[in-house]
Simulated assay, not measured.
Amino acid sequence: MNDAVLTLKGIEKTYNIGKPNAVQVLHGVDLTLQRGEIVGLIAPSGSGKSTLLHIAGLLDRFDAGEMMISGQPVAGLKDRARTQVRRDRVGFVYQFHHLLPEFSALENIVLPQRAAGVSDAAAKARALDLLSSVGLAARASHRPAELSGGEAQRVAVCRALANAPDLLLADEPTGNLDPGTSDQVFDMLMALVRDTGLSALIATHNIELAHRMDRVMRLDAGRIVPA
């Protein structure tokens, strides 16, 4: 039985910076993530990996190819439907935490749930459970400026998981941290992904971290190949 959470077939993307300066970044990307699978993506800077992750997360559109999330084709979806799929089925973690500075750690995790229609009480309970799972229950009322880099990134991971997505996309999630903190945050991320059974595509420059995942792929000349 096909239990793919993310399917990309022949994905192409070109940025038209004026016709003479058109740049094709993706040249027919094929990639499938099965449920519960963690795949590492390695690629040099400027290779298009962020573009690929943005397409997979419905933050950008592709020019050609096919894409499905949990078996649902997304190419023809209107903006509202794309937003709903992204909100309900996809979590995104960036290199920088991008937490809202005026809100506490708890509130940053509550907000995406409230946007999805979850009650305030249920959203707060879910946020506290997630913070507890990463050892930050005591920091729930702290704002991002009061958190260390590693703590803020843990909160960002919790926020990405708040709506129980099928797919987690992470773009250099430990790239802004020192080596010791990077290892701690990565171990936490892997444990959460394993515990929830979701699928994850994690881009990283760290080859050692990449090879701790189920599979490692490389973006090379706009195509995905085994690393």
Results as ranks from 00 to 15, higher is better:
I11P: 04
I11Y: 00
T14H: 14
Y15D: 00
N21Q: 14
L26K: 06
L31P: 03
L33R: 06
Q34R: 13
G36N: 09
G40F: 00
L41C: 11
I42S: 11
S45K: 00
S50F: 08
L52R: 00
L53Q: 07
H54A: 14
H54Q: 14
D60H: 12
R61L: 15
G65F: 11
E66G: 10
I69C: 11
S70M: 04
G71V: 09
G71H: 08
P73F: 05
A81N: 14
R82E: 09
R87C: 11
D88V: 06
F92C: 03
V93S: 11
F96N: 14
H97K: 09
L99N: 11
P101Y: 12
A105E: 00
L111Q: 11
Q113M: 14
A123G: 14
A125H: 05
A125W: 03
R126Y: 06
V134I: 11
L136K: 12
A138Q: 13
R139I: 09
R139T: 10
S141C: 09
H142T: 07
P144E: 06
G149E: 03
G150W: 00
A152S: 01
A162T: 02
A164Q: 14
A164Y: 09
D166S: 10
D166L: 08
L168I: 13
L169E: 11
D171R: 04
D178W: 08
T181I: 13
Q184P: 01
F186G: 11
V193G: 13
R194A: 13
L198A: 13
I202G: 01
L209M: 06
H211E: 01
R215L: 01
V216Q: 03
R218C: 09
D220P: 00
A221C: 05
G222C: 06
R223H: 08
P226H: 11
P226R: 12
